[in-house]
Amino acid sequence: MSNDTSNAKFVQRIKNHPQYQELVSKRSRFAWTLSVIMLIIYYAFILVIAFAPKSLGTKIAAGSVISVGIPLGVFIIVVAFLLTGIYVRRANGEFDELTRKIKEDTK
């Protein structure tokens, strides 16, 4: 029988591999946590626009014309980028290392 995912025994062997369990739980927890962080930031922003749009027009300092909405908007863009960086760093390191081990053990 070939070692691919059409082979039920092979699939079971990978599923029973302790590091497979570790990979799946770690990655899904990490991915969903980051997703929830992004969603909370974005929908908080949307809800402020929906319910209190004026608050985003508050000036950042007395005498300034710049509203808090502007740095906040740029901040959301930067955070979105940083979150992708954080995920890629851990996934391309730790998660790919786990995957490599699983593949080696189940060859």
């Binding site: 991915a31 969903w32 980051l34 997703s35 992004m38 969603l39 930031i41 974005y42 922003f45 626009i49 985003l56 509203s67 909405g69 502007i70 908007g73 959301i76 863009i77 979105a80 979150l83 992708t84 995920y87 890629v88 996934a91």
Partner: peptide
Amino acid sequence: GYDGLIYSIGFLVGWPIILFLMAE
């Protein structure tokens, strides 16, 4: 004015979600 930024942000924030849940 500012409304344009609301669109930009909406267009951008889909990307992290695509990465976390779909890309690989």
